[in-house]
Design a protein around this nucleic acid. Sequence first.
DNA 1: CTGAAAGCGCTAACAG
DNA 2: CTGTTAGCGCTTTCAG
Lengths: 326, 326
Amino acid sequence: MKNNVSIKDIAKMAGVSIATVSRVINKSGKVAKETEEKILQIMKENNYVPNLLAKGMRTNKVTTIGIVIPDISNEFFSKIAKQIQTLFFNKGYASIICNTSEDDKIEKQCIEMLQAQQVGGIIHIVSEKANKENKILIPTVYLDREPKFSNKRKDMAIIESDNLSGGYIATDAMIKKGCKNIICLSPKDVVSTHKKRCQGYAYAMNENGLNLKIIIVDNVSLEEGYNKTKEYIKNNKIDGIFATTDIIAIGAIKAIKEAGFKIPENVKVFGYDASNMSEVIETPLSTIVQPIEEMTLAAVEMLEKNMNGEKIKENRLILPVKIKER
Amino acid sequence: MKNNVSIKDIAKMAGVSIATVSRVINKSGKVAKETEEKILQIMKENNYVPNLLAKGMRTNKVTTIGIVIPDISNEFFSKIAKQIQTLFFNKGYASIICNTSEDDKIEKQCIEMLQAQQVGGIIHIVSEKANKENKILIPTVYLDREPKFSNKRKDMAIIESDNLSGGYIATDAMIKKGCKNIICLSPKDVVSTHKKRCQGYAYAMNENGLNLKIIIVDNVSLEEGYNKTKEYIKNNKIDGIFATTDIIAIGAIKAIKEAGFKIPENVKVFGYDASNMSEVIETPLSTIVQPIEEMTLAAVEMLEKNMNGEKIKENRLILPVKIKER
DNA sequence: CTGAAAGCGCTAACAG
DNA sequence: CTGTTAGCGCTTTCAG
């Protein structure tokens, strides 16, 4: 499997020392044009590709970063992963992507593996269960979800979108259209994002003197959105729903329609994330758009600075979201 | 950034040679229980994590594999990537994931980078434009799409799902329900998967003496599915649609309904991939389910064998698909 | 301008 | 059972 030609092979073929070959590879130091061309030629002929790992080991500069993500098959996260990988690829870095499946045990293993793989930095979306910081020395930027342990370290780099105002503007938009009985459907507040969206909802409701009703779904699924909504509307009147993620809203829509109500005439529905599903569903589903590009770009830039040991004043960033009404 | 303790540091602290430390790390050779425990203790205290790259360099055994994918934010591909990364993670491998964005230039760069990163093997879903094999010596398994250059090398490892019968059973199911005028919506046949699905469609139509009509969409999008369908039904009657991927079917549905037809009463619609969108759309959309787990498992196993230099008789595999009628 | 040599962290004989 | 040593592919002084 190791038919790879090495710098040594090239040197031998060119009749020079490996130092010289190294110099032309890195365009460092002076090499006679003649020798340089000859070496370049031989490298091309033999399809030489430098061993980045050996180089990294020697120079202590690494060309790999890690991305730790709860579930890469989730649309929102996969978009993020794509952006990050592309941004880093263009800078010459390879991205090692790890799935934690929301499991803190696996998450720990991921971090250890990345450390063992000598990644230069990590962009980390914490799992639901992550309670304590993994004790590592690798530069890390937390993205999307605020880690539970973030209050312990004020210098922690965290990039989020503005989930609080996301919840607020969604709810407020419905209130402005006359809704008075708006419920909020959300998973248990294990994750900062959903929690903040609920808080935004609560803020808007309180501001308008409306009674809030937060209904906890046991998991993030169409079924749960459906079941909990169906159950609730048996004995309660509602005219608005704010679900902290699209799929829950879609379940709610199903229940609402089954009960004979019209959307958006009788009940207005807001989801979150502007997923593909929200695009294709035929019932009008309003939603909140997160600034994925800005978030990933900021995370990548911040991580790069961290890796270069640069001081950063702004190590926490909250990016604005947009509303998409339908 | 390199505060990492090394085997040398541990050895010094334990007052033994690095060889001994190496032995306890790898559980190779005999080490006195006493010394072993002492070393283990010190390793734990100092949070020692072995440098896999150095190890790989020395042993010529690498713990990284590459995944090359056209678009990781695509639901189907991201599910595949997740599976592969998980399977390899459990075997102790890290996965470097690369996006080609369907661009053969980027694809080439990806392969080169993976080579430079010394990955042990690659699972590769080729881009649309990939026309010639990248000349590398890394064990590679092609997944999902059959490379255009596959006929040149009969020993190439390729895992696909059965797109041909996918197209066939979808079409056949509609015919069995009485459809006679079924159109097929598909992107230009740049990619083997869509091409084969169309062939399956054609096969079923011919078998039943029906006229086939394949309509090319310019790109894979809801809009194109919508536009091309709307255009066609202006002057033609149809009672069935087979779209080679769900999103196109969803566009078609929109056009059909706008024209006043009922689904599935007047027109039956089949998509492909059993995407989340197909799950939530309120109009009945039948679809074909690909065996993602089996595909990825087979690919991973085949790659592992390749990496271990094992001979494999079956280097081409076509896995069966399932129908999901709605 | 170019080569020799040391060393990054680690493993694998080879001696003790 | 344990230490010494060479070397994986590469960069980087230090001498020529």
